[in-house]
Design a protein around this nucleic acid. Sequence first.
RNA 1: GCCGGCGUGGCGGAAUGGCAGACGCGCUGGACUCAAAAUCCAGUGAUCGCAAGAUCGUGUGGGUUCAAGUCCCUCCGCCGGCACCA
Length: 868
Amino acid sequence: MSSERRKPYPFDQIEPKWQKIWDERQSFHAPNPGENGFDSKKSKFYVLDMFPYPSGAGLHVGHPEGYTATDIIARYKRMRGFNVLHPMGWDAFGLPAEQYAIRSGQHPAITTRDNVAKFKSQLKRIGFSYDWQREINTTDPGYFKWTQWIFLKLYNSWFDPETNKAEPIETLIEHIDSNYEFEDGDDTKQWMIEHKRLAYVADVPVNWCPELGTVLANEEVVDGKSEVGGFPVVRRPMRQWMLRITAYAERLIDELEGLDWPEGIKLLQRNWIGRSEGAEIDFKVDDNKIRVFTTRPDTLYGATYMVLAPEHSLVDQIVIEEQWPAVREYRERTARKSDLERTELSKEKTGVFTGAYAINPANEEKIPIWLADYVLLGYGTGAIQAVPAHDERDLEFARKFDLPIRQVVQPPGDEDPIGFVGEGVAINSPIIDGLPSREAIRKITSWLEERGLGKRAINYKLRDWLFSRQRYWGEPFPIVWESEPDGQYRKHRALNENELPVVPPPLEDYKPTGTGEPPLAKAKEWIRYSGKATRELNVMPQWAGSCWYYLRFCDPQSDRRFVGEDAERYWAAGDHPGTVDLYVGGTEHAVLHLLYARFWHKVLFDLGYLSKPEPFQRLVNQGIILGEDGQKMSKSRGNIVNPDDVIEQYGADAFRCYEMFMGPLEQMKPWSMRGVEGVSRFLARVWRLMMTENQAGEWQLSPALKDVELAKAQNKVLHATIKKVTEDIESLGFNTAISQMMIFVNAFIPQRGADIIPISAMRTFLILLNPFAPHLSSELWEKLKSPGDITEQPWPPYDEKFLVEDEVEIVIQVNGKLRDRMTMSTSATEDEMKAAALANPKIAELVVGKNVLKVVVVPKKLVNIVVQ
RNA sequence: GCCGGCGUGGCGGAAUGGCAGACGCGCUGGACUCAAAAUCCAGUGAUCGCAAGAUCGUGUGGGUUCAAGUCCCUCCGCCGGCACCA
């Protein structure tokens, strides 16, 4: 007895056969302009997946969900006559390979190579129509050479607020030279330049993770713990590379407008960037000024005290002597707090009085200055005017420390004015009394501006991007540090473009040093660049490679440019701002990858290297696939579904179709093996529609197949199917497209063996099925001795005239309740329908003796009789 | 706390304001078979009824409409994001 379960159709032979053919023929290679086979009459379509990190665990069923969707689109668009760019690659720098190296001593490049090979064979087994000639790997020196090159562009650029775009650093130097004069030896000019570079070095309080031995970006810290591993993260000042993404805050918000992204994702980005409009106001403190930011300048008269962040730079100058011990103690205490503690303790306000007073510019009143860690140094000016009457946090603080509370806004209703934070009417505020909040804001801001006491200002939550990591497995920076003749002062300098790529050195020991010094410090030879210069030891974060990979796909082999000009212009073409036409991936990248990539893209666009201002025109998020138990798939729950097992048992086509049939692409949904079986049965029915098994158990063409005209009903189903499948692919409604194909097959299944199956309808159907089940449809196409390769067939058109009915069933309602149905000609007039409905005996019985108030007639659908 | 998304049979889900539950799974019965598997056919929201049929039914309560799963308001539940951002 064979342990092998009998296959419902021979997918185990068909699938490898066609995968080999596609490989040999390079069926899915998209030629670039200027390349052999390029057809300039074809429009382009760029459909992209979020490329995976090739982990050791291999592909899971979540990956192929989006990949199948894009593959269907790619295959469909090719049949529609587009030149389709559908590439795949590997985002292969990152922690797991390095951590594996630490444990095993195996070089991350080896691990990466093995994992890539595994992923690639798994993807090929599913029959995706990627153009494998365009495969890229972010850890390949031929790739990261250009990642480093882009870094040089960032380093050598600044953001000009006048033009609202990035420009080469030379224009800044010209600008400075024409406006200022400096003495010899004055490094103010250098300071001004360093202050504007899009890539710069700064001593910043960073998220330091002792366990991982590295700093992390804000985006990589979740609830005070590292996103990878969940280890505690503390604040610590360190010298780091930063990217000036904040310069683009406004454009990153505004230019979301022209993108076809889910509104939720746009909102997430907007909130992350966090734009607030308000005013900066100067408060006098003796000879100093302290500037605060507020969104509510109309509450200025209610400012009864002021709060500085404990780390604020003016603290040293204003604290009075008696308060120093308390202030010192408070600052030390807050400095020791981790992010986690700061948020956990957020319930309870803490603070300390400085002993100093500021002058409220509106009424010249003296107000006390406090320090408190509920004011953050990194946002606004690190100082606030506290208006306890109209701000929850200030109110809580004022109550705890017994500070005065003064109402200056009258709520519109009968709400409690103390603690009211909404808009109302200004009171107790001589300059703006009686004005609604909006107007009051405008008026007092002008008033402050006229007197040089403040100005309109916009603030963003977005911080500059912390771009260096103390790791091994990442792109080294193309930067060296030069020592001055005195051997002390050290200065960074960019390498020349022709010195790229900077390849990481081989290491024996990849472990983080734990001190914050990067592992590359151990490569004593490598770090020595010249007699007086050493290399930068940090590496770039994992996001770097994925910031521009979609551009490299346009021209992956170029060693002349990060992407050839012609290739970029061709693949970015179209009358919308985005480059990629359709981008499918998970929501987890809403504010990370998708924001970073937009930033880099805009810089490259500004510098004239790209033809479009945005990377991704249309974005679609696929939903998470849950385990059979409805829980998130995880090793510990033991509910992980392995694609290899599914394909082994049911075949790649069934796997693909099930992933699409489960439900709407964007929805979260649980896996079901029974469901796979159902889809597999459908595909087997397709097979048996055209193939029968002889007594020897061999499959042969069904004798029922005939070259005949379609019956009217058959033709109608065929055209309804073409229509539905076409529209559903366009709208990514893959589950309902498959439903319709099931309806088609059910309609053509021979009832008692004697029936005839029209070959022409089968051929058309196979084309529709091809994007979903490419192997099965290719095989049957060949078996039917159809001309050419199915992948080269044009997508079939449908004709509405076959869909019109002569007669339809009309529903009769009485007071909106279904009471009976009748069959009528589609040409029946409204009067005829009304008359027929009223003449219906069942209806007549219900209506008799009642008052007919109204009869609503919906042509070809229903008649509703409203009675009393 | 704030912001978003989602609540439809036993399950996954379908429905331009116009017949709720397409399609699939599961289940029940039947055909084929010595038997099973596979396959095919029929049925399958709930309640009442022998039946014809009736009543109820898209998380809750209300509203708009001739007509609401669909539009508006209230509340409840689940999922995701942000979280002292002045």
